[in-house]
Amino acid sequence: MRGPSAAQRGDRPDLLTALIFVGFGALGLFLARPLDGGTLAQMGPGFMPRVICGLLILVGLAVGLPALRRPLVRIEPVKIRPVVVILLSIVGFGLAVTYLGFVLASLWLILAGAMADPGGKMRQTLLLAAGLTAFGALIFVYGLGVQVPLWPF
């Protein structure tokens, strides 16, 4: 990844850090608007959030500004597939477990989650899904009494 673009500047991971810090700080300040700051003796709910967010923005700037002048450092390449597939399978599990019961949710999670990794064999994945679902139902639902329905009805 080095070469002709060497003239470029900017430590990208640090710039991303600065973006996250400043973003959180700004979002916090925005959300804290309606909260009462109070006084030192009677601190209101808005006092600490404002102090923390202010500091966070300062730290973000302190990380980000020098990073602009440093030589280029790239962020490690992003592969979209595992990120999207894993997150979707988790969210799907959450939705399914209340409405469709543990068994279907668990099957979904494992089968969908397996799509994150292209090389898998179908048969193996199906066996794994069945085995883990049975194991989970046995240990968590029966054994430890996790409060979740097994089936949709």
Binding site: L109, G113, D117, Q124, L132, V146, Q147
Partner: peptide
């Protein structure tokens, strides 16, 4: 490949429960 779906499942149950 076999381990990560299991970890996913345990994590999800843990969070939900």
């Amino acid at each position: 490949r076999l381990l990560y779906p299991a970890i996913l499942l345990f994590c999800c149950i843990g969070v939900y429960s």
